[in-house]
Amino acid sequence: TYYTVKSGDTANKIAAQYGVSVANLRSWNGISGDLIFVGQKLIVKKG
């Protein structure tokens, strides 16, 4: 599943929404920190 980042989103918020850990969200998308951008497409695997 892909999720498009919206204004006000955070890695924590997206992870919680899908029931996954922030560490997994980072791993699936090659993100090292919490910096995400509006319009960015993230791979999300439901927990």
Rank of each mutant, 00 (worst) to 15 (best):
G30Y: 08
K13S: 15
G8P: 02
V20M: 09
N29E: 01
V22M: 10
A15R: 02
V5Y: 02
A11N: 04
V20D: 01
A15M: 03
G47C: 12
K45T: 11
K46Q: 14
T4S: 07
F37S: 09
A15N: 01
Q17W: 13
G47I: 13
S21M: 06
Y2K: 05
T1L: 13
I14F: 02
G47M: 12
A15Q: 02
K6I: 09
Q17A: 13
K46C: 14
A16N: 10
V38T: 08
Y2T: 08
S7L: 14
G39H: 04
N24Y: 07
G19W: 05
S32H: 13
I31H: 04
F37H: 10
Q17T: 10
N29Y: 02
N29F: 03
I31E: 05
A11T: 15
R26F: 14
S27D: 14
V38Q: 07
S21W: 04
V44K: 00
V22L: 13
Y18W: 14
T10A: 03
L35H: 12
G47K: 10
G39L: 04
T10R: 03
K45E: 10
V5T: 05
S32L: 13
V22Y: 04
L42F: 03
S27F: 12
K13T: 14
Y2F: 11
N24M: 14
G47Y: 12
S27Y: 11
K6E: 08
K46I: 14
Q17D: 10
A23R: 08
K41V: 15
W28P: 01
T4A: 06
A23N: 09
D9F: 02
I14C: 01
S21I: 05
T10L: 04
N24Q: 15
G19R: 08
K41P: 05
Y3D: 00
L35S: 13
D9T: 01
N24A: 12
Q17N: 09
F37M: 09
G33D: 12
G19C: 10
D34G: 08
V5L: 01
I31T: 05
I36W: 06
Y18G: 02
S32V: 15
S7H: 13
K41G: 05
T1S: 11
K45N: 12
G30K: 11
K13D: 11
A23K: 09
Q40W: 05
V20Y: 02
G30P: 06
A15T: 02
S21E: 07
S32P: 09
V44W: 02
V22W: 07
R26K: 13
G33V: 09
I36K: 02
I43K: 07
G19L: 07
A23Y: 07
K6Y: 03
T10W: 03
S27V: 12
L25N: 00
K13N: 10
N24D: 15
I36L: 14
K45S: 14
A11E: 09
A23S: 10
K41Q: 12
Y18T: 06
V44L: 08
L35Q: 14
K41N: 09
Q17I: 13
V38Y: 05
K13H: 09
A16Y: 09
A15H: 02
Y3F: 03
Q40T: 07
Q40H: 05
I31Q: 04
A16D: 11
T4F: 11
T4D: 05
K13E: 10
K13G: 13
A23Q: 12
K46H: 12
Q17E: 12
I14N: 00
S7M: 14
Y3G: 01
Q17P: 00
G47S: 12
L42A: 00
I43P: 00
I14A: 00
V22K: 05
G39T: 04
G8E: 06
N24I: 11
K6W: 03
D34K: 07
S32G: 08
A11L: 15
L42S: 01
G30T: 07
S7C: 14
D34I: 08
L25E: 00
G39S: 04
W28A: 03
G8N: 06
A11D: 06
G19T: 05
I14R: 00
V22H: 03
Y3S: 00
T1F: 14
Q40I: 06
L35K: 13
R26L: 15
T10C: 06
G19V: 04
N29S: 03
Y2A: 04
K45A: 13
N29H: 01
K13Q: 11
R26C: 14
I14L: 05
A11V: 15
I36Q: 02
S7G: 08
Q40C: 06
N12I: 15
W28I: 04
K13I: 10
T1V: 14
G39K: 03
A11I: 15
W28G: 01
A16Q: 12
G8C: 05
A11G: 04
G33F: 09
T4H: 08
A11P: 15
K13F: 09
D9E: 03
G47T: 12
A23L: 08
Y2W: 14
I14P: 00
Y3N: 01
V5Q: 00
S21H: 06
W28T: 02
D9K: 01
Q40S: 07
G19D: 08
F37P: 08
G8H: 06
I36A: 03
